[in-house]
Nucleic acid binder design. Structure first.
Lengths: 162, 162
DNA sequence: GCCTAACCCGACCTCTCGGCTAGGATTTGG
DNA sequence: CCAAATCCTAGCCGAGAGGTCGGGTTAGGC
């Protein structure tokens, strides 16, 4: 497997936030308590705390402390690329240990100086990384929210008005 | 990182075999001892044995036992897609634990029956997997051999005639 | 007919990391 | 001031990566 449950849970968390925000202008949305998210996604609360912390550090969600606190998105879902989300959770996405990318897709291999046939594999990993990045940047949170809504009826999302 | 050193070493091993085979018709090529490959790539021999075993099980290389034995490719490099190589080494490439692919890119998610918003993430992982598969199937061993040759002079590959 | 170079195979070992739990400290509405 | 929430740090357990080791088997060369 490529990604761990960190990405899985974290993305689901973001999707849930996106669904609950609906079409409201982000800052107006009621903050959602993590316990509510944990329950509706059936995920361990204590673990989610760690994940949401990473999302917050990357500025993808903001938090409100104290009673009636919770989390909300900092931007509308359509402006959130999934590369940011996944990287916030999993760390930098590189196909191989020796790789560092400079955010433009340019690739540096750390043992490039062997003179030998070092990194004959570079071409391959570069292509793979390109494929992943393209898939990840080409998908926004809004895409996933829409997908989820259309596949999991759940009435009209009973969480908000009820 | 996406792939472990298993893929890295294994691919390099395949590339070396491809370079040494040159343009000879595969079956004619002298089998190359693993110790020679280990030395030229500076990789631990004992570890390579395990990797090459997987490649053999998948029919990507064939072995000759006894003195003057070794390994050779079973097909010309241009007919070896890197997806086969990487999957032989790393096992099935799936973006997420719950995924199984039926070799056509069709995706099954094992916890699809939750009724809930299970796998809102499916769309994302599917796209990612598509990107990876495309990169991997679209690259052949011949591509890497050529790339390696052009980047690591090493005379005209001193190993063969000398 | 042995010796040795090679492939073959399974057991083991260490270290990191994923996945999670525990427990507390801090903030804040009612 | 209490309860609900976010925050923070520490630790635990199992699995898998990344090897190593020791032996078994096959076959060319003297």
């Amino acid at each position: 497997m490529l990604f761990s449950t960190k990405a899985e849970y974290g993305v689901r968390l973001m999707v849930e936030l996106g669904r609950r925000a609906g079409s409201s202008p982000v800052a107006d949305a009621e903050p959602v308590a993590l316990s509510a998210l944990a329950e509706s996604e059936m995920l361990p609360l204590a673990y989610l705390e760690h994940l949401v912390a990473k999302l917050r550090q990357e500025g993808l969600v903001s938090s409100v402390r104290g009673a009636h606190g919770g989390y909300r998105l900092t931007r509308p879902p359509a402006e959130i690329g999934m590369l940011d989300v996944v990287e916030a959770l999993e760390g930098p996405i590189t196909p191989m240990e020796c790789f560092q990318t400079d955010r433009e897709g340019r690739v540096l291999c750390s043992h490039e100086s062997d003179g030998d046939s070092a990194c004959a594999t570079k071409l391959l990993w570069t292509r793979v990384q390109g494929g992943i990045n393209k898939a990840l940047t080409g998908t926004t949170l809004a895409d996933l929210v829409e997908f989820a809504d259309s596949h999991a009826p759940r009435a009209t999302l009973a969480g908000n008005a009820a």
